[in-house]
Write a protein that binds this DNA or RNA. Structure first.
Lengths: 236, 236
DNA sequence: TGCATATTATTTGTCGACAAGAGAAGTGGC
DNA sequence: GCCACTTCTCTTGTCGACAAATAATATGCA
């Protein structure tokens, strides 16, 4: 209950620069969780009335999302959620594996005690999601876990690329999450523990090796899923 | 001379969606060439009257520049050109060297004939700048040369990170460009030629090795320059 | 019926104006 | 003279409205 703050006309009820962030965060989550699947049209006026604000802050959020490649804008015509292209999958995997390796190694090199706490927190959240068999939570917490490792590496350049790759990965995994009820999640938990141990021990070589193995594990999983999907379609 | 197009009130004289790109490109160049040095204030209204347009397209360009980290905005207060931090220099070098290596290797792997043409064009421009002893042109054409190699590698994720790093590098080099009258530029030309040969021969290992050597060369150069600068200050 | 052209509809891009925040400057009390 | 408070100023954030561009639709003609 606010202490009688300015009972003026129509309660602003939101601080000045906050609108953009709200729209950005929510839209980003909806895109990454495929609530807004690739190709979904983004209508500015619709969003404006949904968030009860003008088109200006909406547009700013959209510009930022476009800068990260999450949406694409056809000039003068329309805006929509970008498709994840299966053509350049190899490039995506190359970048993902390399960033797993590099960030794990740098984390082992530069970690501080508080980094380990943050990493272990994320790992606990991931383990909880696995126990609960909550696939969406698994995907999100797994990405958060690896982002925390990257943070411990303290290289903002790698971090921003890695974040982008993990985002894209969230969309891929969300697309095929049905198979997440198999034995792999528990294996991921164990591999995560091994990575934490190597980072805690400052064993850079081992951390890099584990990062690579974990990444290639994930790549194989996604490839299996996509191939499985294609086989299903061919079987028709 | 336009063929009598719409002699209405105040000739628009610029196409609809073009304003943002003009502002973005020009501002970006001015930042990278240190015409706008780090810390320079960015005033929206001033830019608006400079480009004869409203603040809206200006703001959109600024949002995109902020997304790339070239400017920073203090909420509700001011916007200015971001400082290049000498604290995280090690992280910058790590990322730069790795991207040199990766893009050179990928270029050797995926290059097509037209890529080689583009790379050789950029190399010719760089060599011309060296002959002319035009330091600013050297810096820009060198970055363009390596961007072309990255393009040939066909990995958009690496390319975007590498572009960002090369931009940042342009600012660093521009800061210390006085020493560019020594023997290094010609050595760079030769090293570039060797890289082109390896990429043309599809020798991935050699391309990666040369990319690494070239990158470490540049890192050493920048480190020498910065140390030299610091030593000068200490000598006082 | 089929095609070229004109019209409409819808969405984006741009504009000018206003209001909110945050610092700077000014003011009063001790 | 110094500190707390108020006022002012300046920049940014937000708004509603209008204009341009494009796709969809309608119209006319063969």
């Amino acid at each position: 209950m606010e202490p009688a703050k300015k009972v003026s006309s129509a309660a602003p009820e939101r601080r000045r620069g906050s609108g953009v962030r709200v729209v950005y965060d929510l839209l980003r989550d909806e895109i990454l969780d495929l609530v807004l699947p690739p190709g979904s049209p983004i209508d500015e006026v619709q969003l404006a009335e949904r968030f009860s604000m003008s088109r200006t802050p909406i547009r700013e959020a959209l510009v930022r999302l476009a800068g990260e490649g999450l949406i694409v804008t056809l000039p003068n015509r329309s805006t929509m959620v970008s498709n994840l292209d299966f053509l350049n999958m190899a490039a995506f995997f190359d970048a993902l594996v390399l960033m797993y390796r590099v960030t794990a190694q740098l984390a082992a090199q530069h970690r501080r005690p508080e980094d380990l706490d943050a990493i272990r927190d994320r790992q606990a959240a991931f383990a909880a999601a696995v126990r609960a068999q909550d696939a969406l939570a698994m995907i999100a917490t797994n990405a958060a876990f690896h982002a925390a490792i990257a943070e411990a590496g303290r290289n903002p350049y790698f971090n921003s690329l890695f974040s982008r790759l993990l985002d894209e990965g969230r969309r891929f995994l969300r697309l095929y999450y049905q198979s997440y009820e198999d034995r792999l999640p528990q294996q991921f938990v164990d591999e995560h523990e091994a990575m934490i141990a190597a980072i805690a021990a400052r064993d850079t070589a081992e951390a890099e090796r584990l990062g690579r193995a974990h990444a290639e594990q994930i790549v194989r999983q996604i490839q299996t899923l996509t191939i499985g999907d294609e086989r299903l379609e061919i079987a028709l």
